[in-house]
């Protein structure tokens, strides 16, 4: 289980979020640009530090301001799919996926076995020698996901994983993405703008407004949020989920 209870002063507002994500659960974060969604993912990944609070995974703290604990991002074992996918352009598809295994000093034999397994499952084995910069958007998305999953992460973070794809590919990818993430059985947080992503991929969803959770509920309820979110009804009454 992932427990987040953090505060961070951003330029225009204060990010104050308290959420929990259960094992195997997919939490969707929705909200306007600049509302703090990606910042929250970066806080959890350890790429930036909160001002105060606590982040714990399976009961073990990743960050705890009270005890001055801050685990470095490289030892958190979190799979992170970036919005731009951040595939290393100078490496092949194979080397991108193998990167996380090489940092863990696995033998080349083990690496080859695991990479082949993941690339074949993603339908990417044929293009394993292609440079990451030269493949299509859909292939990049699958490589980024394979790279994040191969390290057997304890938590998955995905920042708008479908935004770089065209509409037709998005629809096909949603079901695929949900299946892959669920098969890992770890807590997952996905940032998105698209309410269709929430309905198709997520189990639960939170609407973030100016750094605070304005609404939360089952993913199926979210379609109704579109109308509510534009009205004055929403007030961030309770930022605890």
């Amino acid at each position: 289980m992932l427990e987040i209870d953090v505060e961070k002063q951003l330029r225009d507002f204060k990010l104050e979020v308290k959420i929990e994500v259960a094992e195997g659960e997919i939490l969707m974060l929705v909200g306007d640009n600049g509302c703090g969604k990606t910042t929250l993912l970066n806080l959890v990944a350890g790429l930036i530090s909160p001002d105060s609070g606590r982040i714990a995974l399976d009961g073990r703290p990743l960050y705890d301001s009270a005890f001055r604990i801050s685990v470095a991002p490289e030892v958190r074992n979190i799979g992170y799919v970036f919005q731009s996918y951040a595939l290393f352009p100078h490496m092949s598809v194979y080397d991108n996926v193998a990167f996380g295994l090489r940092t863990r000093k696995l033998s080349e034999q083990e690496i080859e076995f695991l990479v082949k397994d993941h690339l074949e499952a993603a339908g990417l084995w044929e293009i394993r020698r292609a440079k990451a910069g030269s493949i299509s958007g859909g292939q990049k998305q699958r490589v980024a996901l394979a790279r994040a999953l191969i390290i057997e992460p304890r938590l998955l973070l995905l920042d708008e994983p479908l935004s770089a794809l065209d509409v037709r590919k998005q629809a096909a990818m949603r079901r695929d993405l949900r299946e892959k993430i669920h098969s890992c059985g770890v807590p997952s947080i996905i940032v998105t703008h698209d309410l269709r992503d929430v309905a198709c991929i997520g189990d639960r969803a939170c609407l973030i407004e100016k750094g605070k959770i304005a609404l939360s509920g089952e993913a199926d309820d979210v379609i109704g949020w579109g109308a509510i979110a534009n009205s004055d009804v929403i007030k961030p009454k309770d930022s605890t989920v």
Binding site: P73, G79, F82, A86, F88, T103
Partner: peptide, 18 residues
């Protein structure tokens, strides 16, 4: 060099030097 590459490498287990 996009900082996302550095961030991605760190989350994949690479130290700053690596």
């Amino acid at each position: 060099v996009d900082t996302a590459f550095e961030d991605a490498a760190r989350t994949l287990g690479a130290s700053r030097v690596y």
